[in-house]
Write a protein that binds this DNA or RNA. Sequence first.
DNA 1: AATTTGCACAACCGCACCGCC
DNA 2: GGGCGGTGCGGTTGTGCAAAT
Length: 265
Amino acid sequence: MVRAPCCEKMGLKRGPWTSEEDKVLVSHIEKNGHGNWRALPKQAGLLRCGKSCRLRWTNYLRPDIKRGNFSREEEETIIKLHEMLGNRWSAIAAKLPGRTDNEIKNVWHTHLKKRLKQNQANTETILQSTNCNSNSTDLDVLPSHQAYASMSPQPSSSDFSSVTDASVTTNSMSHVKGDDMDLSESFPEIDESLWSELPLAETTTSNMLSDLLAVTDESQAQSQFNPLETVELGYNYDSISTDDDMDFWYNLFIRAGGSAELSEF
DNA sequence: AATTTGCACAACCGCACCGCC
DNA sequence: GGGCGGTGCGGTTGTGCAAAT
């Protein structure tokens, strides 16, 4: 079956929608609903094809659409769901109220995919620096928690600003940064057993981080948290690719009782 | 200041699926 | 059961804008 393109008819407008067209479409749907998308543009007096109207409505004009940047939780959800569902954007969107499949798809291609690549590269570097023999770059050959770390979202610098405790002195790690960072020199020798001693992150990372951030008393934090856990949290959340990233996780490390000597990483 | 480049997002295209006749 | 029309979905392209040169 070969169907003619929906916009084959001459005279139908394409390209970006004007605010006037938006008004007409919204007004028509509010009054009449969208029973038949094909018939809608004619009924509404729009020089658009039904498909274009449907797309405009579902991706942009629907009243329940949530605008603005994705939160870290949303990004984390997308990454996890994508891991489970693959490129089934509509299925992923169904789990994120107010977000459209198109929007999620765009976020994935513009932010998250890039981040995963970077995290994967960083993980590889760390593995090399710890003499962990890994010639492969595939996520599925990494230890589970490291593979998970590579899949996890990276908090932005702005995210850190609200939670960084100014009372905690930081800066000694700021020199560790960027593409030219030599991890074999910058990080201490990490015994392979470290990874097996660290708690698995799959179910606890978010809760641990929020708990740790919620503790205001430093001694309480030190009694409740293992500094190594903060290291793992860092790698679960983040590739630690900027100075701010590094400072943020270093703060948590110190707060949980980590040794300042390790600031010489 | 002008031009180029890269990024983010909106919109389009084509195929697949589903329900109706 | 098969044809047809409508809709949904995922991949891709186009456009506008900001940053870089």
